[in-house]
Design a protein around this nucleic acid. Sequence first.
DNA 1: TATTGTTATACTCTATAACTATA
DNA 2: TATAGTTATAGAGTATAACAATA
Lengths: 139, 139
Amino acid sequence: MTDAEITTADALAQLSFLVLRTIEQTSAAHGLSPAQARMLGILRDREPLMTELGARLGLDKSSVTGLVDRAERRGLVERFRSAVDGRAIHVRLTPEGRERTARAEADFTAAIARLVSGLSAAEVAQLTRIAGRVVADAP
Amino acid sequence: MTDAEITTADALAQLSFLVLRTIEQTSAAHGLSPAQARMLGILRDREPLMTELGARLGLDKSSVTGLVDRAERRGLVERFRSAVDGRAIHVRLTPEGRERTARAEADFTAAIARLVSGLSAAEVAQLTRIAGRVVADAP
DNA sequence: TATTGTTATACTCTATAACTATA
DNA sequence: TATAGTTATAGAGTATAACAATA
């Protein structure tokens, strides 16, 4: 009974703050904001329309315009017109953006490994599996 | 082999975005920003100095000034001078702030319960225990 | 008319640097 | 001198509402 009891909500909230802080730190080390890092991660294997990007990020279209504007100004992404719809615009990584994304992700993976380094291999596997289930089940 | 393999880093990043979105939604339903909700949660059982609050939140003192300003304007918190140090200022919840905090937390707890409703009771317990361990081990 | 995207505007959040008041 | 806090300023991120261009 020396360990404090902790609710699921508390444990997940605190774990999330920890992971988000890790994302902030590794992003910042590569000159990226967390929002940009998240967008670049999505663009790693897609060239979505502005609207689709907004849907994936859960952001309003005007927010996506600003996010893409700032990333484009930094040479990380570029816009190009849809071949089939004159109104629609795709976004994709530039080579520079792709490199930065890869390096930031490698650092993030290493940081997460340090974060769970106090767990046994079996516990890490359980955590990964259960977290993956929650994410997959989510609406 | 029908399930996609997922890395620990990916699973935790996605879970964290999911939890953060839940915090945003339940906060917004009570007229709070995520940053405010987090601050109010800290103030639930403390009356810290501005500096101590900043240390707990990991924020610069000027950021804390703004955060407390906006919360004070909404009647959620109040400042009061230290009895022992003429420079120092404590922050505490108002009765209104305490009520809002309690209601938002209850909603958040319910939302997290829905998030993990696809897991077995044993899995929820495992997730809670392991997440708690990671948080407790973190620097 | 409906949809795609941008612009104008406003607010929150955050940091750095300069400042005031107290220790 | 050093510390606690505020102010001035700047930039990112977000949303709502109004708009232009295309479907």
